[in-house]
């Protein structure tokens, strides 16, 4: 995955970048399967590698295939992203061990989720649709809003000479 990103950075051909990001998504899905998060892996494979690749290719069709030279020097954004990354790594060092059963997150509501009073074998679905139903309603509304925004932005306008 790191190799994919490193190849992606100096590449100026946007088509190659899109294909590489699709490869990155598939590798990410594999990593998620290795972490036993099959639901997320499925989403990553279908959204990250499938739909978004198609959408990016569609966007590429509308513009030029080569990335333009940047106007500004990249030092300020680079400094910001490196410092944010350092902060995140510093924060991640304070997290409990991976799959540690005594981690705080496994002490609070997880036992109740795993008792599975809704009797649905896939706990992810139970948490997503039942225990956290409000969250999922919000997510669905966000997706709907994204669609509505796309319609508002890209709605087919009337030809220019029809306008005053």
């Amino acid at each position: 995955m790191a190799l994919t990103v490193l190849v992606m950075i100096p590449t100026r051909n946007l088509f190659a970048v899109i294909v590489l990001s699709g490869i990155y998504s598939f590798l990410m899905a594999t990593a998620l399967v290795a972490l036993d998060a099959v639901d997320v892996a499925m989403t990553e494979a279908s959204v990250g590698a499938g739909i978004s690749t198609v959408l990016l290719l569609g966007a590429l069709y509308l513009c030029k295939g080569e990335e333009a030279k940047p106007v500004h020097k990249p030092w300020l954004p680079l400094a910001v992203s490196i410092s944010v990354a350092a902060l995140l790594v510093y924060g991640a060092l304070g997290l409990p061990e991976f799959a540690d059963p005594s981690a705080p997150i496994h002490q609070h509501v997880v036992p109740r989720y795993l008792q599975n009073e809704v009797d649905v074998p896939n706990v992810v679905t139970a948490v997503l649709a039942s225990f956290r139903g409000y969250d999922t309603l919000g997510e669905t509304t966000v997706v709907f809003t994204a669609g509505a925004g796309i319609i508002a932005l890209l709605r087919r306008r009337k030809p220019r000479d029809a306008q005053p």
Binding site: I51, V54, L55, G58, A59, Y61, L62, V118, D119, V120, T125, A126, A129, S130, G133, T136, E139, T140, V143, F144, A146, G147, I150, I151, L154, R155, R156
Partner: peptide, 30 residues
Amino acid sequence: QHRGIFWVEVGVAVTVSGVMLKIFYMFASR
């Protein structure tokens, strides 16, 4: 619970597929 989860999932699927298709159509037709 089963009935509720079923219908909620139907709602999510319908919206998501609609939005994805709409975005694709928008880009393509543009």
